[in-house]
Design a protein around this nucleic acid. Structure first.
Lengths: 230, 230
DNA sequence: ACGTGTTTGTGATAGCGGTCACAAGCTCGT
DNA sequence: ACGAGCTTGTGACCGCTATCACAAACACGT
């Protein structure tokens, strides 16, 4: 089992476990944790936790649980968080600025190392301690700063072109915040974060809840009338 | 088929189709579109598009394609975008401010109707044309503004409590940007957007790519040496 | 040394989601 | 009126994911 490739779904949960483990280690100073406790903290099923961790190897002790320090080390290593990952951010609008200032990135070795835009009004200004550069300088900056990850916070119509420039500059990992579909070669990883889509999904289920509530209400009234009639 | 419940995966893709269809209607003024073209624009498989749309009912014409206007109407209706959805945003930090200013929200009937915080330095200030209110005023604001959706952009340790306050105020849909696991009752929809997790997932695959490249390189050298030796 | 209680690791199973392939059905030209 | 050429709608299949259930293995008290 421990030599099989790690499933995507598991990879997506490892950061959640990592966070929970850091909490246990730093805040509470505990040494071991059971799959049940970890599952509770991560908001998932205990069996899922065990199966996920088993892909990393068998680092638990039956009857005891998992050694927190060791697990932290293994997950950190597996996620590649032992090195730091300089990132380039293209598109210095509201969202781009917020991300440039965002502390959450720098936490785990992610560091926004360069900012890019194409607007002459923005290029040259300083944001979050970095000088905004023109997108044309991307290649040099990537080489110079050792940039590995590209983040897109441009308007939608520019997203595809920026992605292509990122790929052209040698980046293989892209995080897209622009509300647009971006196509890249299969050897490039791309993940999207789309606020508007998330809201629309919530809207769908919210509407369904309201429709069900309305139907239940109508039914209740109808039955009430029938009851008083009978 | 058209009366079966719509799968979650399909719901998550409807907004993508919607965007593509708006593009086709507004930018190019087309009347019909084939599943293949729509699939290309949405970055998915054509069969998947057809199956997804078939859940809404059979609105296509064989040999021709789908009527864009009609499809737009159906998807809009199904996603509940015919009404607008006022949202509350709690946590006025960098990210909260950026979202408050973000234009992408207001596009499809989503409107940030109230901002909340607990910090006295922030409460009372004006952000994006709205006065930041204290979280204690949540209930009144929800009733007053007809708020349906809660957005969490607080630091992680405050996320769970804010979520509970949202639920307590009657909200059934929550979007969580805080890097923390939030548990709510099963009748409440919660979706999370976690920038740090996305980066860690990218990091995992990036590292694997580098490891594979390194192994390939080592192998090439080894074979080269063996070749010259033999 | 041994039994009891606990927790892991994993085979088995069920369900969901993606893809293929093709029949059904439409339009249009002749 | 009819055949050619498309495109939809969907049954069938396959792989991935989640969950269950239980044997294996450990610690600890006596």
């Amino acid at each position: 089992m421990r030599n099989r490739p790690i499933p995507e779904a598991t990879v997506a949960r490892l950061p959640v476990y990592l966070r929970a483990l850091l909490d246990l280690a730093e805040e509470r100073g505990l040494l071991t944790v059971s799959s049940e406790e970890l599952a509770r903290m991560a908001g998932v099923n205990a069996a899922k936790v065990r199966k996920d961790l088993s892909y990393l190897g068998s680092y638990g002790t039956r009857g005891v649980g998992y050694d927190i320090e060791y697990l932290l080390y293994q997950i950190t290593r597996e996620l590649g968080l032992t090195q730091d990952w300089p990132a380039a951010l293209a598109g210095i609008g509201n969202l781009g600025r917020a991300l440039a200032y965002y502390k959450g990135f720098s936490e785990r070795g992610f560091r926004i190392a360069a900012l890019f835009d194409v607007d002459d009004e923005v290029v040259g200004t300083e944001v979050a301690g970095l000088q905004v550069r023109h997108l044309d300088e991307l290649k040099e900056a990537v080489a110079q700063e050792g940039i590995c990850i590209g983040i897109i916070t441009t308007p939608p119509h520019a997203a595809q072109e920026v992605a292509e420039r990122f790929v052209d500059a040698g980046l293989k990992s892209i995080l897209n915040f622009a509300p647009a579909v971006v196509n890249v070669a299969p050897d490039v990883s791309i993940r999207k974060v789309d606020l508007s889509i998330e809201l629309q999904i919530l809207s769908f289920y919210q509407q369904r809840k309201q429709a069900i509530a309305a139907a239940r209400e109508a039914n209740r009234r109808l039955e009430g009338r029938l009851g008083s009639d009978g």
